[in-house]
């Protein structure tokens, strides 16, 4: 009986295993292979170059800039995202009316429904635009000088992070809300009997019991933010002034499709892959919990 169950399980897993092999494992291995070649997809001779592409990375100042920008964007955007979405989810869960709770969740989730590219176009042309953008109109009305939000290197990353948070907060608010709703009411009642106020309830009950949700949310957000591409390519003109908005994903695209150096682009992709893998493993280890409720 057990053996036939195993066979059945293996059988029904064939499609998903095949999908993983064809669309995940083979492309990853292919990318790894290409990263050791001087590879032009249009060329007939693609020579093996050993570690040359990886050595080139160390001398490439644009790669260093892209790596620094990617880490800066990911750390700040993920950090702020988690703080705001957790705070918002906690505040929403305090509301008594189901309808009001649903209303706020929907409001925060609405930007997530629009494609990132479309939202970025609207923000780039109507909100952050130096000449006619809404933000600068308000600043001018208040007597200030217009700011080049996407044209001044000091503001580029800030602008992209603000846009990303606006576009992406809703997902995490929904996930945190689901986690908070899953915490049994008795735990809060017991905390109240012990004299805990709202802040102590949050730090000593909500936060620890949300461990698994937080691990999941942080991990998924980290992975997703490391791979962010749309807002950088749409919101900024050619990676922003002095490459201030150049991130690894846009650099991979540029090297592969503008410079047509697929081998080098593959090497950068491998570095990004390793980076995400390391961060994911560390995060999983750090976020491990050994309790249930």
């Amino acid at each position: 009986m057990v053996r036939s169950n195993k066979k059945f399980l293996l059988l029904i897993m064939i499609p998903i295993i095949a999908e993983a092999v064809i669309f995940l494992i083979i492309p990853i291995l292919g990318t790894l292979g290409i990263s050791f070649m001087d590879y032009n997809p249009l060329g007939h001779t693609n020579s093996f170059t050993g570690w040359d592409n990886y050595r080139k990375l160390l001398e490439d100042e644009n790669f260093i800039i892209a790596l620094r920008n990617t880490l800066c964007f990911t750390i700040f955007a993920v950090g702020i995202n988690i703080v705001i979405s957790l705070t918002a989810a906690t505040m929403i869960s305090q509301l008594r009316s189901n309808k009001t709770r649903s209303f706020f969740r929907m409001m925060f989730f609405m930007p997530c429904m629009a494609p990132m590219v479309a939202s970025a176009v609207v923000w780039g042309r109507s909100i952050l635009n130096t000449k006619v953008g809404l933000v600068n109109e308000i600043i001018r009305d208040m007597g200030g000088d217009a700011i080049a939000w996407t044209g001044d290197p000091s503001y580029v990353m800030f602008s992209v992070i603000v846009f990303t948070l606006w576009a992406d907060l809703g997902y995490n608010i929904i996930l945190f809300s689901a986690g908070i709703d899953g915490i049994p009411g008795e735990v809060y009642e017991a905390a109240a009997i012990d004299g805990a106020g709202p802040f102590r309830k949050f730090f000593n009950v909500t936060l620890p019991l949300l461990g698994r949700t937080t691990t999941f949310v942080v991990l998924m957000t980290l992975i997703s933010y490391f791979q962010m591409f749309a807002q950088f390519s749409v919101l900024l003109f050619k990676d922003g002034p002095q490459n201030s908005g150049l991130v690894l994903t846009s650099y991979i695209y540029k090297i592969a499709f503008v410079n047509k150096d697929m081998g080098y682009a593959a090497a950068i992709s491998v570095i990004l892959f390793i980076l995400i893998l390391i961060v994911s493993l560390v995060q999983r280890k750090a976020g491990k919990v050994d309790w249930e409720y």
Binding site: R125, N129, T130, A148, G151, D152, F237, G240, P241
Partner: peptide
């Protein structure tokens, strides 16, 4: 320098 720096597409 807005022609090179600004992402306004104009």
């Amino acid at each position: 320098m807005s022609g090179l720096d600004d992402g306004s597409d104009i």
